[in-house]
Computed example of a mutant assay.
Amino acid sequence: MNKDIKLQDLGLKDYKETWDYQETLFKGIVDAKIKNRQENTNFKTNNYFLFVEHPHVYTLGKSGDMSNLLLNEQQLTQKDATFYKINRGGDITYHGPGQIVGYPILDLDNFFTDIHKYLRFLEEVIILTLNDYGIQSGRSDGETGVWLDAGTPFARKICAMGVRASRWVTMHGFALNINADLGYFDNIIPCGIRGKAVTSLHVELGVEKVSMEEVKEKLLKHFSILFEAKFF
């Protein structure tokens, strides 16, 4: 079992380019697993973790509803945004500057083969990181992601999640709002959930800007502890 994870911070990068890169890494791990099985070998499989910020983009998961996008093509162009239907779970979400997107591309055979546990661990990484800032957060029944004041009329989502897994290899991941322009969420029904707000860490802390690098360090610390992993 290889619990070393190669960390790559891609900076600000186009969504489609990043998706294609994820697919390349994902396929490399899957192909290695197939080869191990066919040849009865046991070579180590790689794990990756990508940090990235995307230009304004809306993505719709494979089970999502197009009606949750409230813009037409012309309006998307006016807002300097793009749109993609993609192969993760979940409905529609927004990515943009001021948001930390994390894509763990892991062979779960190196950790544990339980997708439910994997999602709960991803949520826990976010919950523990927000707790470092004095922000109490948690889960909302039946709704993946991380919420503030879940179960109350003031419920608001701070982190969306959607993953794909095949042969216990994961891709896609989480999107945590740090200094996000929340106005872009007004153009969708986030995650297909009506009547619930979205928030960002800088809003909750009442500051103009939060250090993205500091948040990333905290995310990696909690991830490495929960997954018993080492980044390099």
Rank of each mutant, 00 (worst) to 15 (best):
T129P: 05
L50T: 05
G206D: 03
F26S: 13
R120G: 06
K218N: 09
L128W: 05
D132P: 07
S63P: 08
G96L: 02
Y48W: 10
C159P: 01
P104N: 12
H172G: 10
S211V: 07
T24N: 10
G195H: 11
K33A: 13
L182G: 01
K6C: 09
A175Q: 01
N68V: 12
K13S: 12
G96A: 06
I188S: 00
G28C: 09
Y48G: 11
G145S: 04
N42W: 13
S211P: 10
G151M: 11
A81P: 00
I5H: 05
K196N: 11
R120E: 09
G28L: 07
I115G: 02
H56Q: 12
T129R: 07
Q8C: 08
V125H: 00
R37F: 15
Y58E: 01
K35L: 15
P97Q: 14
F231H: 02
L60W: 03
V169D: 02
F49A: 09
P153W: 15
T129L: 09
T18I: 14
Y48C: 11
T82A: 11
S211H: 06
T93M: 01
P97G: 12
G61C: 04
G90I: 00
R156Y: 14
Q8L: 14
I135K: 10
L226Y: 05
D14N: 15
V210L: 05
I86L: 06
F185D: 00
V198Q: 07
Y184F: 14
V52Q: 06
A197V: 08
L201E: 05
T82S: 10
P104F: 03
Y15D: 02
H116A: 13
V101T: 09
D181N: 09
D107K: 07
H54C: 04
M171R: 01
L70N: 02
M66F: 09
N47S: 03
I193G: 04
F51V: 13
T93R: 00
K33L: 15
I34F: 07
G173Y: 03
P55Q: 09
A160R: 00
P153C: 14
T93F: 00
D107Y: 10
A180Q: 04
E143D: 06
D14A: 09
N40Y: 13
D149V: 08
G64Y: 00
Y184N: 05
S63G: 14
I100H: 06
L76D: 05
A165R: 05
V198M: 12
P104H: 06
I135G: 09
Y118R: 08
N131P: 04
I135M: 08
S140H: 12
V146A: 02
R37N: 14
T59S: 00
I100F: 11
T170A: 06
K117F: 11
V198S: 03
A32Y: 07
K209N: 07
D181T: 04
G89N: 03
S67W: 03
E214K: 13
N110S: 12
T41I: 08
I86S: 03
A175I: 01
T18Q: 08
S137P: 13
W147A: 09
R156E: 13
A32C: 11
